[in-house]
């Protein structure tokens, strides 16, 4: 039980749309264990973005339950969810979402600011996280002085700096060329090898191939849940 980082049960999310309700998720049940590397796939409209928002505690479900690291988080207040995100989840976005005017180092420090970590410790931990993704020589560069791949690695360092129990990546290679994508996926694989639990939302099979498990959604429900033997 304690081995499960994520457990969702009968998860439902509906959106009001012009007086009617649209069901984006219709009762999804899913568990992800510690140190699993899972790709979530599905065509657009399948509910994978909705699931990603729910798993990331950015949104709350209309029905069903969500245990994150043993804690029931499906009915928490906004601020309590913010605390959970800060502590448990590291986000990697398709568009990087770095603060354009801040150095790589300061970008990585951001989650620690909201965790209330003092500035010296913040700096130390940010340096360590940037070193982990191989950017120790680019710490004082601004995002516009970095390549796309380097920017995404800054974002990964930022996601890792709080030592979250879940690394959640939403189309992390969507804005990158294939060489750089491979480079980023290698970073994910290394992190996975070091014990990180990773969930990647993608629509590209080549990216999903790096994961050890692929979950496919269709019409807001689980379509398939398979293991990739190729990936380790």
């Amino acid at each position: 039980m304690s081995d499960r980082v994520i457990h969702v049960e009968e998860l439902v999310r509906e959106y009001p749309m012009g007086g009617e309700k649209v069901l984006a998720l219709r009762g999804l049940t899913l568990s992800i264990r510690r140190n699993e590397y899972v790709a979530i796939m599905g065509p657009s409209g399948s509910g994978k973005s909705t699931l990603m928002n729910l798993l990331g505690c950015l949104d709350t479900p209309s029905g069903g339950d969500y245990w994150l690291n043993g804690q029931e988080v499906s009915r928490l207040t906004d601020d309590a969810l913010a605390r959970v995100r800060n502590k448990e989840i590291g986000f990697v976005f398709q568009t990087f979402n770095l603060l354009p005017r801040a150095s790589a180092l300061h970008n990585v420090e951001l989650p620690l600011v909201y965790a209330g970590v003092g500035s010296r410790e913040r700096r130390e931990r940010a340096v360590r996280a940037l070193t982990r993704v191989g950017l120790q020589n680019r710490m004082h560069h601004r995002p516009n002085e970095l390549s796309g791949g380097q920017r995404q690695r800054v974002a990964i360092a930022r996601a890792l700096v709080n030592e979250p129990s879940l690394l959640l990546a939403d189309e992390p290679t969507g804005n990158l060329d294939s060489t750089t994508s491979e480079e980023i996926m290698r970073v994910f694989s290394e992190l996975h090898a070091q014990g990180q639990t990773i969930v990647v939302v993608t629509h590209e099979p080549s990216i999903a191939a790096h994961a050890e498990r692929v979950v496919v959604l269709r019409d807001g429900k689980l379509d398939s849940d398979t293991r990739n033997r190729a990936a380790a």
Binding site: G56, D79, R85, F91, N97, L99, Y114, A115, R158
Partner: peptide
């Protein structure tokens, strides 16, 4: 949105 995702509360 990013700051909120990183854990910033409303306050």
């Amino acid at each position: 949105g990013l700051r909120k995702a990183m854990g910033a509360t409303r306050q």
